[in-house]
Amino acid sequence: MLSVKGLKAKVGDKDILKGLDLEVGPGEVHAIMGPNGSGKSTFAHVLSGREGYEVTAGSVDFNGQDLLGLEPEERAQLGLFLAFQYPVELPGVNNTYFLKSAVNAIRKARGDDELDAVSFLRLMKERLKVLHLNDSLLKRPVNFGFSGGEKKRNEIFQMAMLEPKLAILDETDSGLDIDALRIVAAGVNALRGPERSMLVVTHYQRLLDYIKPDYVHVLAQGRIIRSGGKELALELEEKGYSWITDGEAA
């Protein structure tokens, strides 16, 4: 599904990713943990094609496609989805119109018919329920004036609408209250399936109680320095990062 080899990237003249390797198979859920500033969001952005990063080495293969050569929209059309750590407000852009444009752009690229207004509305209603989102948010501009938690839920709602093959959730749990965390996790779990993989970036073990990962990785100083199963997250929760990173530096 996703194969990252020796990925190096910089912003300006600052090296951030310094040889990152990661293999994600179909249907797998991988958690990525790591200290602040270690490069987790940078990795997510490089995967989704955000401007401003220069990839200096390595490769990213996504279902047989060289991801790094594609525009952001082409990556999304192939089934990549990023739930932003900081979702962007789009003043004046109606949420429903935005979603419909996105769903249909992706359907069109896949060779499916565009959804008509009725079927789109039906799909939207159905997915809204799972996330306990108030449908008044759909009439508002995208993320505009949304609370922190509403923004995060709106990201997962978009994911539910777009049905990606690989979803990257960048700290979707931060800023959520306990109930919202449960709802969002349930929404994510509802989307788990043999064909859908996930990269879950988080600082907290708590989220992983709800979304059980198959693998846990530690990203520090621009590389994956430790990989393991669920128990690694528990260990990190207990001991912090220093027991690994110190060993690494030595």
Partner: peptide, 26 residues
């Protein structure tokens, strides 16, 4: 805003349509 354009494009929306959507939003 490049950030806004990227957000739209990351949802599969082409760059020209993303620009139009933001202009109409404005």
């Amino acid at each position: 805003e490049p950030e806004m354009l990227f957000y739209l494009r990351s949802r599969g929306i082409s760059a020209p349509l993303a620009q139009r959507m933001l202009c109409l939003g404005f």
